[in-house]
Design a protein around this nucleic acid. Sequence first.
DNA 1: CGCTCAATTGACAACGCTGTCACAGATTGG
DNA 2: CCAATCTGTGACAGCGTTGTCAATTGAGCG
Lengths: 359, 359
Amino acid sequence: MAKPPSKPSTEKSPRGGGRLTISDVARDANVAIKTVSRVLNNEANVRPATRERVLKVIKALNYSPNLAARGLAGSKSFLIGLLYDNPSPHYMNSVQMGALARCRAQGFHLLVEVCTPETKNVTQQILTMIAQTRVDGVILTPPVSDNEAVLEVLRRDRVPHVVIAPPKLSDVSLSVHMDDLRAAYEMTTYLLKLGHTRIGFIKGHPTHGAASLRYDGFRKALADKGLKLEAALVKQGYFSFESGVDCAKALLQGRKLPTAIFAANDDMAAGAIAAAHQHGLSIPDDLSIAGFDDTPVASLTWPALTTVHQPIAQMAAAAADLLLAAIKERARAPSSGVASSKRFQHEIIVRASTAAPRR
Amino acid sequence: MAKPPSKPSTEKSPRGGGRLTISDVARDANVAIKTVSRVLNNEANVRPATRERVLKVIKALNYSPNLAARGLAGSKSFLIGLLYDNPSPHYMNSVQMGALARCRAQGFHLLVEVCTPETKNVTQQILTMIAQTRVDGVILTPPVSDNEAVLEVLRRDRVPHVVIAPPKLSDVSLSVHMDDLRAAYEMTTYLLKLGHTRIGFIKGHPTHGAASLRYDGFRKALADKGLKLEAALVKQGYFSFESGVDCAKALLQGRKLPTAIFAANDDMAAGAIAAAHQHGLSIPDDLSIAGFDDTPVASLTWPALTTVHQPIAQMAAAAADLLLAAIKERARAPSSGVASSKRFQHEIIVRASTAAPRR
DNA sequence: CGCTCAATTGACAACGCTGTCACAGATTGG
DNA sequence: CCAATCTGTGACAGCGTTGTCAATTGAGCG
């Protein structure tokens, strides 16, 4: 009985990679399945010529390995979980774009998981997700990143994770962050240098870690210039446009008007602009206004908003890199990873909403 | 040698569901693995008492099944791919929130895939993703939804998919959509009813399907009122703030000024507002301005923007429902699914940027 | 030329679940 | 009362990969 000839690679046209398996490749390349696996995983000890041949067949067949099988057999799932709880679409979009680019570049996929504020048991939700999907790592964004219970669980289960904008630098987790205090300090200093001496400040949401840092930066800048903080010029906002309107109105009804207002985020700054318009004030001639975050709205207000730019997408990309590196490292040495944090540089973006005060 | 006693269920504390397998549950519930599987998949032919018992053990152990194994053994991956290529963070955020809620409610996870405009071969990218992850279905958002080649591939490989805002209603795909023409018609009619007769229009990006529908709606409303379309009052924009500024400036420099401007999206409307401010015009007294989409920026401009609201999150949720239903249906009868489309109702949101023209 | 040792390759058993099918017990009908 | 039928349950074989370890190859050396 004649042995059936091995089928030529052209038999299956290089279409969707649909139902191809690793053994199809092995057959065509005339090697064992395991060797194909070695090539796929970039393992050592494959003769260059063999590797070449296998790669050629893979390409010809347009084969790509089944993640589920890989996940089951090996330990890697090639899945990264993105924990998501941010009310700002722009922020989350930037994070996703940044993280996704890096993940895909390294062959990982992004699994998005939302935990709305109503979610009673975030911890349980994460646990379930990990058990189900066996994600190789998790990226946390604010304000989930403030949740100590979640971090605790991730550490206990030894799930690699990276925190974007952690409330405080941890010594057990990876993280990326920005210097909110310094940024607010610089913006305040910029306003002072323009000649403003009465600067109103609209604080951010009281539970948001970074918000208080921004206020600290504001105070420090005043102090360093020898100026006293006037309580009447500080209002408590909540990051929303409406709270910005309210706070600005309150500031503009005081006895001695501020010549500038610095809001802890752009939405509130936009609110301040609206309030100023309503008061018949001209910006920046009668009143300078500065924001924080450089969201798209900062370019769409009239006049365009002077604000602090954070490189969100870059931070997210770096977070992904950090995470992926840790995952690879852990595969080599299962010892717990080292904590490390990368700091990013902000930038003061001067637009049309600020100017020297009118004499 | 004594046979080791089967370990009691309390041995593994109900923690992370970490390394539990289905056989742990089977042992504790005193049934076969297959029976646990039946319970997990809600299959028939399990005695209620047995089902109960298994469920109790599952809960006690805090067990959740391994998706990779499920995917490998069965045909389902419990993964939905979200194809993503939208420049608007707000839009994508809404889509994700809407889709994610439904997916998670039905035990599915969301895999995000970006295809930037630079991606040379979107089709290949999708093919690879499908081959790797074996997603059970795909959700397409505009403008990917306009890409006929992508749709073609999905159909050929018989991957269930749903299209959000397709350029034209397909007879082979699921979709959800809104009546852009009618919405623009209504907004225009609203402006006409206020008493405006010279209405400027800023068109959207020329390659965006919905953009031309909006223009069609505008023209139809004028025609139905017996008004002639003045070419000088129509400008070609590109959906960006800057193009809105430019178009509005051009409109405001014409001989006979319009008393209202209708822009095909909010960003351009915001641009028009800025341009009007620069021309020293008061809104809405000197000039009414209307937008389209009801993005967050519409509430942050001054004055707040009259615009058309689309229920994006609801549409995405419906899209997910449609898709999940089709997946379940296909599991029952592998015949190709029926096409169906669900239409959603828009809403005219009247804010402060529009009013009757000054006499 | 024969031997050693490292480099390369392959056979085979998992991984955790579902599909298939066989089987025991319960139910029905004549 | 027994065959015929239906329910509920379990044994077992994969699904497409990787891990383990044995087998084969080839180069270097005395």
